[in-house]
């Protein structure tokens, strides 16, 4: 049996909101360590890897491994009915045909209970080896989101160029072009405002702006985003959860 209680529904609300526009059907794999998901978007360009460790829950138990096949849009409809500050408990039997979601208001005696039908989802599972990256950028997630939104107004592609201590986001469109350069910066008082660039080799990669604009829907999850890049390899965009992560692997565009 699975029983996982979040102190606040807001964490799962944000996670589902970040994923629902990229993937429609997901298997949520529940083990004693927590809940993990691997899913690929319909155009097969973006891979999402979610890990909500047991430590992200107030209480968590899962006696046997359980797979919950969930339709993200339906899950989102139910999740939106709960308040962000409600306690949220996920409950499923050992061979479940439904996931139960219980929202409890902390101040009043109000309990809302929902049941979501499960689906049998046949999904490929890809093995993600430990990847080597030539550049790692840690930056404020809100700053990254604004750059992705701004650059998408010009072009469907966004170029990321990293040299010693700066990252250049470049967009070449039909009616004009634009770029934003950010440099390494340490804010000792507000560390979440800092930009850190770790570089082994310079990077020049191009990505679909549409996918980056789906990835930035994770912004409310974490104040910083970590971007890991290597030539001709998928880039990794990572948002840390209190215990776990939401990762996006995005295939770069390149000429053969």
């Amino acid at each position: 049996m699975l029983e996982g209680k979040f102190d606040e529904a807001s964490l799962l609300k944000k996670v589902i909101d970040a994923m629902k526009d990229s993937v429609k059907l997901c298997n949520f794999n529940c083990t004693e360590n927590g809940i993990s998901v691997q899913a690929i978007d319909d155009s097969r360009v973006l891979l999402i890897s979610l890990l909500i460790e047991a430590g992200s829950f107030e209480d968590y138990r899962c006696d046997r491994n359980i797979v919950l096949g969930l339709e993200m849009e339906s899950l989102n409809k139910i999740i939106k009915n709960g308040n962000a500050s409600d306690m949220l408990t996920l409950v499923a039997e050992d061979s479940p045909d439904a996931l139960n979601l219980i929202f409890e208001d902390k101040r009043r005696d109000r309990i809302a209970e929902y049941s979501l039908k499960l689906m049998d989802i046949d999904q490929d599972f890809l093995k993600i080896e430990d990847m080597k990256f030539d550049a790692v950028v840690n930056m404020p997630s809100a700053e990254f989101a604004k750059i992705c939104r701004d650059m998408k107004t010009l072009s469907e592609s966004l170029q990321i160029i990293i040299t010693k201590d700066s990252v250049k986001f470049n967009s070449e469109g039909d009616f004009g072009s634009g770029s934003v350069v950010i440099k390494s910066f340490t804010d000792l008082e507000k560390t979440e405002e800092s930009v850190r660039i770790t570089l082994e080799k310079p990077i020049n990669l191009t990505f679909g702006a549409k996918y980056l604009n789906d990835i930035i829907k994770s912004t409310p999850l974490a104040s910083q985003v970590t971007i890991k890049l290597c030539d001709k390899q998928p880039a990794l965009f990572e948002y840390q959860l209190p215990s776990g992560y939401l990762r996006f692997y995005l295939a770069p565009k390149f000429e053969d």
Binding site: I40, S43, R44, D124, F125, L126, S157, Y249
Partner: peptide
């Protein structure tokens, strides 16, 4: 610029 699919980069589990 061509857009490769993500599974080209990873092995099936």
């Amino acid at each position: 610029m061509p857009q490769p699919i993500i599974s080209q980069f990873f092995l099936p589990h």
